[in-house]
Write a protein that binds this DNA or RNA. Structure first.
Lengths: 252, 252
DNA sequence: CGTGTTCTTGAAGCCGTTCAATGAAAGTGG
DNA sequence: CCACTTTCATTGAACGGCTTCAAGAACACG
């Protein structure tokens, strides 16, 4: 079995509706996407890799398939290798707060008290590398560097969460959307190389639940950006026409 | 030298203006506050403690004194032992987003890239245990459990950040304030034992910057809660009169 | 082709902000 | 100890951005 973490990243984020004519354009920069450099695996030496191969398992998730649920015992950790994962919490009244999106290379799991602290499901076809928690812990015991890497991953997530808190607390709708697009573009760029095409496998509702906006406002704001020629709305994504302007609005 | 981490926690959070007649009441449950149980030090065996004693240093901060600044090289890590620390980021236009408050027992520092990811300053008289980064790293190398503890601390911070995102994104002002008070009460309770008196060493502006509200709304909402006999506003804090009701408002 | 879901767009209403004035408390220097 | 200054908290009035409600359009899927 090939370990997903070692294979080149498949950046082909599928459109919600399946293949489309313009899809080839969206993926122009994604031919070569070595994931190893930013995955936790690079902390492992050759022996570590061998151990990882023995316990890692490539799994595929269809759209909306749950990786795990909040409160559930954490029996495994994941390293996303392709697609996009929604991380969210549910309110008592059924509404959601999307706390983040996990892109290829991102690490999920390993809560301190063995219970997942949020739910995660796939937004579109997604693959991940799954590690049994017990065996992963044993591997960590043998490779202290790995824990440091996982910790760094958590701190980076905390940093992103802080960015998000700045957005949620003190920005108006247009700045939220603009910052969201710019930020997502940069995250994709780190994976697939820089591109003005930003895939949005998640729906408008997801974006709204992430930014603390109603779906109406998300749609309206995107439409206005498109009218002002800042972006171009394409199926399952946007093409950024005026990045400088978008940054300006985001910092606004 | 006495190591602050080993001494009983002084829960005497000073009022911004110094001593006051009602202060004794506010601290009724704080006579005995052993901090060791929830500090990172409990991960260390006796030898580890010895090492910690050699490198730890008790430091005191006056109100508004900076522990460190965002972007600054991280030369030390801190374990708060008394008082309260504001964690914040600055916008380009000078406004702040308070990303959290560190209470006694909380761990600060150890970013992945050796640069602080937010600023931290004292809200009122605060003491902390300071560790040089280099020596702390060496200690971590000798005590793998310690890193796991630090990691857990980061994950807990991430969890709090997610809670905060839920508040910021999908709650109205009264729910934000109510949840803030309930949450802070529980954090104090873990330190000082349960009490209906919630010290608020930070100012209204800090609370507003934390919850994404204007200072006017913070003040108005607190006043309304007081009018409705849910809380009682006392200098540098509030006394919770109807906790059940407060929880109800917090949950929406 | 029909059905269900997602996205767009309009209109009305409300919550929170902004601006501004007043009041209260703390810090300072005489 | 008192007057002055500064900072912080409270409260009012008006404005505005976002939500809610609702209807229609576009799209996916059987």
């Amino acid at each position: 079995m090939t370990i997903a973490l070692l294979t080149p990243l498949d950046c082909d984020v599928p459109a919600r509706g399946g293949l489309r004519p313009w899809r080839a354009r969206a993926l122009e920069n994604c031919d070569e996407c070595p994931i190893r450099s930013f995955s936790i695996c690079s902390a492992l030496d050759r022996d570590g890799f061998g151990a990882l191969q023995a316990i890692g398992q490539e799994v595929t998730f269809r759209s909306r398939a749950l990786l795990f649920m909040e409160g559930e015992p954490a029996e495994a950790v994941f390293n996303v290798t392709a697609g996009l994962v929604r991380l969210f919490r549910l309110f008592a009244d059924g509404r959601r707060q999307v706390v983040g999106f996990a892109l290829p290379g991102d690490f999920l799991g390993l809560p301190p008290d063995d219970r997942h602290m949020f739910s995660a499901d796939a937004a579109g076809l997604t693959t991940a590398c799954r590690f049994g928690r017990q065996t992963f812990s044993e591997l960590v015991a043998e490779h202290p560097d790995l824990l440091r890497r996982v910790h760094d991953s958590a701190v980076r997530a905390l940093d992103l969460a802080h960015d998000q808190m700045m957005l949620l607390g003190h920005r108006r709708a247009e700045a939220k959307i603009a910052a969201f697009l710019v930020g997502l573009r940069e995250r994709w760029a780190r994976i697939c190389g820089s591109s003005v095409l930003v895939p949005l496998p998640m729906g408008r509702q997801d974006i709204g639940d992430f930014l603390g906006l109603s779906i109406a406002t998300v749609s309206r704001t995107l439409t206005r950006f498109a009218r002002e020629r800042v972006i171009l709305i394409v199926p399952s994504g946007v093409r950024i026409l005026d990045l400088a302007r978008l940054r300006q609005v985001a910092d606004g």
